[in-house]
Simulated assay, not measured.
Amino acid sequence: MSIPAERIERLTDLAHAAAKADRMDRARRYVRLARRIAERNRLSLPTRLDRFTCDACDAYLIPGRNARVRTQSGHVVLTCSCGAQKRYPY
């Protein structure tokens, strides 16, 4: 695994831990750093980071705390507290 990929994985873990501890500002910073590293090195984000972050406000989404999860005609719909939605097939 390359150094940028390892750094992105570490930032993903840190963002998850910060969001669990209600440090949303710190989790948002980790998400932004991970996205910048991925863009700079032309890497894709891990699925865990890609699916559980808001594209609009960079928040790390935790269902029930700052995100709402619903199913709708074969899709999972994640709604952030800012109002942005993400859809994934299941």
Rank of each mutant, 00 (worst) to 15 (best):
R65S: 11
D55F: 04
D58I: 03
T47C: 12
G64K: 04
A19D: 00
R29W: 09
I62L: 14
F52C: 02
H16Q: 10
R40Y: 01
D13G: 13
E9V: 07
A56N: 14
N41S: 11
T53H: 09
T71W: 13
Y60W: 14
A27E: 00
V77F: 00
R7V: 06
N41L: 02
V31E: 07
H16V: 06
P63K: 11
I3Q: 14
R7Q: 15
F52N: 12
G74S: 12
K20V: 13
R51H: 13
L61D: 01
A19Y: 01
A18Y: 02
K86V: 03
L11D: 06
D55C: 10
A56P: 00
N66V: 06
R87K: 08
A17K: 03
R36C: 07
S73N: 13
R68Y: 02
S44G: 12
H16N: 11
R48W: 04
N41F: 04
M24C: 02
N41E: 10
V76T: 08
R26H: 04
R70S: 05
R28I: 07
T53R: 03
A67I: 00
H75F: 12
D22V: 08
K86P: 06
Y90L: 14
T53V: 10
P4K: 03
E39M: 13
C54Q: 01
D55V: 04
A59H: 13
G83Y: 00
V76W: 05
L33H: 05
N41T: 07
H16E: 15
H16T: 07
L14A: 14
C80M: 01
E39T: 10
G64I: 05
Q85C: 07
R65M: 05
D55M: 11
A19K: 03
A84W: 07
R7H: 10
D22K: 13
A67P: 02
T71P: 00
A15F: 01
E6H: 06
D58L: 09
P89A: 10
V77A: 04
A38T: 11
N41V: 03
R29G: 15
N66K: 11
D50Q: 13
G83M: 10
L43H: 08
S2A: 11
R68T: 14
S81L: 02
Q85D: 13
R28L: 08
T47N: 15
N66W: 04
A56F: 12
T47L: 15
R42F: 06
